[in-house]
Amino acid sequence: MFVRLVVLLLTAFALAGCAVQRTVDSQVQSWSTLARLPQPPTYRLDLLPSQHQSRAFDLIVPMAHAALQRAGLQRDDTAPRLIAEIGVRTGTGLADGPWYPYGPWGGGFGWSRHSGVRAGWMLRELPPTLYRNEVSVVLRDATTQKTVYETSASNEDVWTDAPRIFGVLFDAALTGFPMPPAGARQIRLPLAPAGAGAH
């Protein structure tokens, strides 16, 4: 009876998790010299040689294009008004202390010799691993080569969703374009389900 109850609880938790869409909290900071959307609002994406030769960028480039177009820009590789440059970076590290983010305790299930499955709590000896993902976008005037827009977005979480999280970060970085609020800000956006294509 107890085992059946545990199985039912685990099933309910799994179904609830599938029904809840994850969100991504991004730290964003932008700088702009633009007073309005450039006319025509066209751009060309220029990649560095290392980005051209990276297979990972084959997945990231469509996400950047989609975010730039959602921000109101139109791709024009022949006669663009703006030149766009992008960057991505990812890494891992430990949280700053054992209490991040939910305290030093974690729930778990284990086997008991006397009662079969048992549910309980265990003390975590080490802080969880954090996954940090960052993107940057720089826009330059195609005629003068002057930088007119610079923005970045970063996220730290105990879950890793690369590479699809980069699509959300590009959207966050371009929030408010072409006249974003001054200073650092936090942007929360939904994470597209796996298999939904480029965000």
Rank of each mutant, 00 (worst) to 15 (best):
R36F: 03
A66W: 05
P49R: 09
V117T: 09
Q29L: 10
L48W: 11
T92F: 03
F109P: 07
S50L: 11
L47S: 01
V117M: 10
N155R: 12
L59D: 08
G17T: 03
A119W: 09
A172M: 03
Q145C: 01
A64N: 00
D171S: 14
R124M: 08
W105G: 06
P38F: 00
Q69G: 02
G110H: 12
R70F: 01
H52S: 14
L37D: 01
Q39F: 07
L5N: 13
S54V: 01
Y100N: 07
Q145N: 14
R164M: 02
L169M: 05
P181C: 10
P127K: 10
L82Y: 02
H52E: 14
D96Q: 13
A142M: 03
L45I: 12
L130H: 08
L126I: 14
A162K: 09
I83H: 06
A198W: 01
G97T: 10
T160I: 05
A12S: 14
R55C: 00
P190I: 01
Y131D: 09
Y131Q: 05
G72H: 07
S32Q: 02
D77N: 12
P40Y: 03
A14E: 09
T90R: 13
W105C: 08
I165K: 06
I165L: 01
R4P: 06
P181R: 14
G176E: 01
Q186W: 02
A153F: 01
W105Q: 13
